[in-house]
């Protein structure tokens, strides 16, 4: 049997999100750097993470299996490229849905101290593959995660 090869396509886009957190950059940065903290927010909405490895350092690679409860169909594989403590994180990651590629991203996260807290700027430059995801959908997912960080860092230290 000959498999029908899918129509290949790439859609490039840039997502920009900003949040103001009432916590110091040190604490907001730790939400990314500390594996225990990150496991609490690193998935959109009510989705769940079923498997996750951590290696937060330049050149470090991580994987995360996640999805709706009972259907961990997504796999993300990331590599950290640039880490400036309490200032900046740059990483790239690829994502698959049941083994089929859906996107490759380059994400920049910047932490800036402001009066009363931290401004976080996230820019995700993404290549969406073969029509398996939409930019608006991806943005919604990331926004949900950033909101969870807000809840986490505003908890009493």
């Amino acid at each position: 049997m000959t498999a029908v090869s899918p129509t290949r396509s790439v859609e490039h886009g840039t997502i920009r999100l900003e949040r103001l957190y009432k916590a110091k950059p040190q604490r907001v940065f730790a939400a990314w750097a500390d594996s225990e903290a990150r496991a609490k927010w690193d998935v959109p909405g009510r989705w769940v993470i079923t498997e996750q490895t951590f290696d937060f350092r330049e050149g470090g690679r991580e994987m995360k299996r996640f999805g709706p409860a009972g259907d961990p169909r997504f796999l993300a594989q990331a590599r950290y490229v640039d880490i400036v403590p309490e200032r900046r994180i740059v990483y790239s990651y690829g994502m698959t849905d049941r083994g089929e590629p859906i996107s490759v991203s380059l994400t920049t996260v910047e932490f800036t101290p402001v009066a009363g807290g931290t401004r976080l700027m996230l820019v995700e430059q993404v290549s969406l593959l073969d029509g398996r995801d939409k930019l608006a959908h991806r943005e919604e997912g990331i926004a949900s995660k950033l909101d969870k960080i807000g809840l986490l860092v505003s908890e009493a230290a």
Binding site: V10, V81, D82, S105, L106, Q125, S127
Partner: peptide, 22 residues
């Protein structure tokens, strides 16, 4: 059909950029 790679550029020990190339 397609190659997607992530790369970084250094000048000596300074990292100057990170890219996705499709």
């Amino acid at each position: 059909e397609r190659i997607v790679l992530a790369y970084e550029m250094h000048m000596d020990s300074t990292r100057i950029s990170v890219s996705l190339g499709t």
